[in-house]
Design a protein around this nucleic acid. Structure first.
Lengths: 116, 116
DNA sequence: TGCTCATATTGATGACAGTCAATATCGAGG
DNA sequence: CCTCGATATTGACTGTCATCAATATGAGCA
């Protein structure tokens, strides 16, 4: 690859950086992609938004099922993914389950983009 | 849903916020999820990382194919997705194609998380 | 013109994700 | 204990995604 000189640039190795020492490794990339996988669904973004907007800081599942146009098992599934991604925290009190934002988890995700 | 009193909370409507006026609508959510869909793949994160780390600010495709362990068509495909998500910019000079970060695109994505 | 090289597009394939219906679990109350 | 109501789990289905091999495009050059 790339043995001939290029039209518009110097022919030295400046452009041929193999994988810059500062670039992301394969494992780190896979790790970091997990958070964005969790954020890559509109319904999950709405769930996060609702939980964040809730004044009490804790939102019951029954209040998350209605606004989204989804069945209860599906909402439960999305919530599980958000918990596993470290974005939400689940606390069960009696029959009800309350979800709350993990403090600074969203900021951490934003931070990933800052120092890619 | 939710007609009986709850164990630990007041019975008034404070918790029953149907979809808080501040919560994300369906269309906005779908829109915002697009960026994260683009970020939700480890190889695309690595591509962004390499382009960002490149001193020249412009990276040729031939330098992006090697570090990732992927075929050239696959890399081209990922680059297209990143361009369509508004994260990368493509400039073709002669036979070569150079990709560069769209200024502040990553910050904008991070901003979405800030004011979910 | 015709060849070569860099990149993009197409088509096919296997893996994964979102959704639902049905069912399981588990606490609360009678 | 037995039922009810809230949430979680399972299984199946469907659509989307990542990847590759093959091919197309299109610029540079002899």
């Amino acid at each position: 690859m790339n043995l001939a000189p290029r039209p518009d640039q110097a022919t030295d190795d400046a452009c041929r950086t193999p994988a810059g020492p500062t670039a992301l490794g394969a494992e780190e990339a896979q790790q970091k992609a997990l958070v964005f996988k969790a954020l890559a669904d509109p319904n999950r973004l709405r769930l996060l938004s609702i939980v964040k907007a809730d004044a009490s800081g804790e939102t019951c599942v029954c209040d998350l099922t209605a606004p989204l146009d989804l069945g209860q098992p599906t909402v439960s599934h999305h919530l599980k993914i958000l918990v596993e991604a470290g974005l939400l925290r689940r606390e069960k009190r009696g029959t009800w389950a309350y979800y709350s934002l993990v403090p600074s988890a969203l900021d951490d995700a934003a931070g990933i983009l800052g120092d890619l």
